[in-house]
Simulated assay, not measured.
Amino acid sequence: MKSMTGYGRARMAIDGREISVEVRAVNHRYLDVNVKCPRAYNFLEEALKKAAGERIARGKVDIFVQIIGNSTDDVVVKVNIPLAQHYLTALRSLSEATGLANDVSLLTLAKMPEVLTEEQAEPDTEKLTQDVVSVFHLAADEFEGMRGREGEKLADDVRFRKQTIIGLLEQVEARAPQRTVEYREKLEKRMQELLSDTTIDAQRILTEAAVFADRTAIDEETVRLRSHLSQLEQMLCDDKPIGRKLDFLVQEMNRESNTIGSKANDVTLSKLVVELKSEIEKIREQIQNIE
């Protein structure tokens, strides 16, 4: 089980470039990948989003890319021949007009403004994309490791809450039959007070107690809740993304606990149900972090 939050970073020098990739993620209902890189490298975005989608199922993911080029291969020197010829013609005219020697050299001409210009070469986008994606995967390895460690902590906490719920459920199941016995005794006592001079109809008391027991029966709810807890443990052992499934399962657990609470009709049971719902809510809060 993995957490949705995590961080990873990798840096590598490839073909004279220093490539740095950072991966950060926080909770999100779906997968939302944002790539942030220098404008000149916007062509990397699609490939990085695809690579992220192959490794991450859910979360708001930010990928930061930095590329520092140290290679002279990235620079192209261009010669403006027409401009150089204009300079040369102008210098010849100046020599003739002034009577000075025309001693223009190649170096002199090359130093004239805009004759030689430097431009950034167009990168090999396919090769650079492969290089950046390879560095991304190194960062993603560290990112996944952190998410896995956080996921283990979340799983341990959920298991602890699950065991607490099982303990509370055992108390609920033990209390439920006693509640019916106490109701029957209370009903018999009230009838004795009201009908002190009249013979009490024991059959009527049994019938009333049976109706009460049927109306407040929680056997089905406790069985389903135990089934949900069993499914919870199975999901925690799954190596696939389970966040959404867990969210749905906890909703069902909460529904069963609400039904038990509505049928409680007993102070002790009501208190147990409050504790039960509190633990389920704590699980719900934790699984919001699970991929």
Results as ranks from 00 to 15, higher is better:
161 R>M: 05
94 L>V: 01
267 V>N: 09
289 N>I: 02
282 K>L: 05
148 G>E: 13
69 G>K: 14
77 V>H: 06
204 R>P: 05
3 S>D: 04
179 R>D: 00
69 G>I: 15
27 N>D: 14
271 K>S: 15
73 D>Y: 14
215 R>N: 04
254 N>L: 12
262 S>L: 10
183 Y>S: 02
13 A>V: 15
27 N>Y: 10
232 L>F: 03
275 E>T: 04
57 A>G: 11
277 K>H: 02
135 V>I: 10
205 I>G: 09
242 I>H: 01
257 S>Y: 04
70 N>Q: 13
271 K>D: 12
217 A>S: 09
145 G>M: 13
271 K>L: 13
220 E>W: 00
114 E>N: 03
90 A>F: 03
51 A>R: 07
202 A>M: 12
240 K>H: 13
150 E>Y: 10
186 K>Q: 08
125 T>L: 06
5 T>R: 12
273 V>M: 09
81 I>Q: 01
164 T>Q: 08
151 G>R: 00
97 A>I: 05
252 E>W: 04
109 L>M: 00
40 A>T: 10
220 E>K: 04
62 D>M: 14
142 E>H: 14
189 K>A: 09
255 R>C: 11
82 P>I: 04
65 V>A: 02
114 E>M: 00
86 H>Q: 14
282 K>R: 14
184 R>M: 05
195 L>S: 05
200 I>P: 01
229 L>Y: 00
3 S>M: 11
25 A>Q: 07
246 L>I: 03
213 A>E: 07
26 V>R: 14
163 Q>W: 02
96 E>M: 07
283 I>V: 13
173 E>S: 02
152 E>K: 11
13 A>Q: 14
156 D>M: 05
242 I>W: 01
220 E>L: 06
97 A>Q: 11
162 K>R: 08
114 E>Y: 02
133 V>P: 04
124 D>P: 03
87 Y>F: 15
163 Q>E: 09
274 V>K: 09
190 R>E: 06
85 Q>G: 02
196 S>P: 10
283 I>S: 12
3 S>T: 02
290 I>H: 12
226 R>F: 01
5 T>M: 13
174 A>S: 04
208 E>K: 08
130 Q>W: 04
286 Q>E: 12
154 L>W: 06
203 Q>D: 15
8 G>V: 01
90 A>K: 06
88 L>E: 00
39 R>K: 12
280 I>W: 00
217 A>W: 03
175 R>M: 01
208 E>H: 02
267 V>Y: 09
206 L>F: 04
18 E>M: 13
183 Y>M: 04
227 S>A: 09
122 E>F: 03
286 Q>C: 07
146 M>D: 06
282 K>C: 08
141 D>L: 12
15 D>G: 11
249 L>Q: 09
112 M>N: 00
4 M>C: 13
30 Y>I: 13
49 K>N: 10
96 E>V: 11
137 H>V: 05
118 E>S: 12
47 A>W: 03
96 E>H: 08
75 V>D: 11
4 M>D: 00
193 E>R: 08
14 I>A: 09
169 L>H: 02
140 A>G: 14
76 V>E: 15
199 T>R: 09
49 K>F: 02
10 A>W: 10
